[in-house]
């Protein structure tokens, strides 16, 4: 079976620190997960999340700071709003809302992050493929 396509969008601050620390201490991350970094989760818009699904993501996880830790103030709240909206759209499209999740971390929580990422990967794998096929697959059909 095709491996799931997982995308993590990671805030540069606490979550990125967790990722770095996880890497340094040999903690293994789900192999199907690709992570891209942004300065703040408030940086990304709904379009980017939707595009992830359009390009074939089976699950997207936003890794963000806790609300009260955001270096810039509103980042996580923007993240919540984006997730709520995109989830509604996903629901309309018949795509399981749980394919889009957000998790917040403090900088020292590398272990919890790794656990959360594995949980996420396992849940998505159990869900199977995203019914919205990426373009290249649609072309293949």
């Amino acid at each position: 079976m095709k491996r799931p396509n997982l995308l993590g969008i990671c805030c540069n601050w606490s979550p990125w620190t967790c990722l770095n620390a996880a890497g340094r201490t040999n903690l293994e991350l789900p192999p199907d997960l690709r992570i891209i970094r942004v300065m703040c989760i408030g940086r990304i818009n709904q379009a980017l999340i939707l595009k992830a699904f359009e390009y074939g993501a089976d699950g997207v996880i936003l890794l963000e700071c806790r609300d009260e830790d955001c270096r810039y103030g509103p980042g996580p709240e923007v993240g919540h709003a984006n997730v709520t909206l995109v989830r509604s759209l996903l629901d309309l499209l018949g795509i399981d809302q749980q394919r889009l999740v957000e998790r917040s971390f403090e900088a020292h929580e590398k272990d919890r992050m790794v656990t959360e990422l594995w949980n996420f990967a396992e849940r998505i794998e159990a869900m199977g493929a995203n019914p919205a096929k990426p373009r290249q697959e649609r072309e293949a059909v």
Partner: peptide, 17 residues
């Protein structure tokens, strides 16, 4: 540094294997 175009390209590339 984190332009829209770049982020989209990164997502596209990450998902395209």
């Amino acid at each position: 540094y984190f332009s829209n175009q770049l982020l989209e390209a990164l997502v596209a590339d990450a998902m395209a294997g």
